[in-house]
Design a protein around this nucleic acid. Sequence first.
DNA 1: CCTTTTATAGTCACAGTGACTCTTAAGGAG
DNA 2: CTCCTTAAGAGTCACTGTGACTATAAAAGG
Lengths: 245, 245
Amino acid sequence: MTTPPRPEGYDPRAFEPFAVTVDLAVLTVRAGRLHVLLVQRGQEPYAGAWALPGGFVLPRESAGTAARRELAEETGLPDAVVAGLHLEQLRTYTEPDRDPRMRVVSVAYTALVPDLPEPRGGGDAAEARWLPYDEVPPLAFDHDVILADARRRVGAKLEYTCLATAFCPPEFTLGELREVYETVWGVPLDRPNFRRKVLTTPGFVEPVEGPPRLTGGRGKPAALYRAGGATALHPPLLRPEGRSA
Amino acid sequence: MTTPPRPEGYDPRAFEPFAVTVDLAVLTVRAGRLHVLLVQRGQEPYAGAWALPGGFVLPRESAGTAARRELAEETGLPDAVVAGLHLEQLRTYTEPDRDPRMRVVSVAYTALVPDLPEPRGGGDAAEARWLPYDEVPPLAFDHDVILADARRRVGAKLEYTCLATAFCPPEFTLGELREVYETVWGVPLDRPNFRRKVLTTPGFVEPVEGPPRLTGGRGKPAALYRAGGATALHPPLLRPEGRSA
DNA sequence: CCTTTTATAGTCACAGTGACTCTTAAGGAG
DNA sequence: CTCCTTAAGAGTCACTGTGACTATAAAAGG
């Protein structure tokens, strides 16, 4: 199955080199649905297919730096947005034949962003678009697997971290925050109970002093909050049932 | 800070190649203390220093395969043990200067094992030994960081998974299982409460039918259990306070 | 005006847990 | 043998957090 090991005198330069790439699963909640940022590939292999944004790590870059650079290049999102977004290493994908061209190891990242302006293509990407998660077509390489892993991870992290605020604009209502949970988990949550839980967890959110209003829709205007200082949720906010959807 | 990006016409082979390695943080509980499997390096750089076991990923190997191979080579642990152990990808370390020789990206794994026979060196490792976690000297490369990350991750995973059984032999007592939690978390747990929690969580452990005894120490002999079918813990078993030790 | 919609307040019962006590079954010392 | 120590295992009680649910407040639209 593999080349026999040569423990002593092993010189990695003697072998065909590895390339290292980053891939990004950028998620957002838009109109009550989970969306993913995808790019349409402009080159072979998989030219024309949709893929996660990403690309090669440069010789003097860390993978995290490369992730932000590639995201900016391929999607044209504003620099301030790219610099400030929550980026988290997900997993590294190393199957020998995952890229038909050569041996490529890819470090995948997950990013959570509030609803953002439409991106534009750039670099290797012919086009960049937000697609609803459940309308995503088969993706290039093993990106379907990466995306599924990212979704599972984000769902789990909502339970025991304050990460949901990363999906919201700087100031948000508890209704918007609840929508994040409902969208990612795919289950409706009880409004009063959700409110109680969030407000009694120290550091999850803090009230914004200004006029307790904001709207455009009907119903009583909601108070505004911003993310608090806490990052972990103790005790966690468990999703109903053991469902992993 | 980095070489300027060259979005189009980028050929990764034109650059100095990356090497890809795996590093393993193998943890066990021995005599009530957390231990780490370390090897003493036989070659430069860091010759003579302690390091996590690991090595280069071969051209036709996945990182997971490489991890098991390197572990077997460098520690001489029995094949059956290496084949059966719980191995989990931790994180990938990509800082450009983490290895003084060349650009090396390392995929780190965490493994949890029951108390095992003393390993022996082999391959690049002059010696292999179990060292108590809090007596670990400064390690080669960025292995201190990897080890600390592994420890934090394992501590967190004990809360919401059944992973603790991976530290135990196939049949174990609830006292041994509790010792795993106490050792990794560094806090004493209430015996009856721990017992109640474990036994009422479906699929965490299942009783072994045989004679409800085993011993060598004093005290009432404990019933034996083996790991159940569950992997997740709902609801989780939270450690006292929000301590992350 | 009434209806609809959403936010916010409050109630009640129950499950899970922390803190604790008590009993049982071994080994060791005398 | 008896008594002491040690650890397993059974059981109690009070409190916290949560799920389910009801009620009120404040907006928009007919």
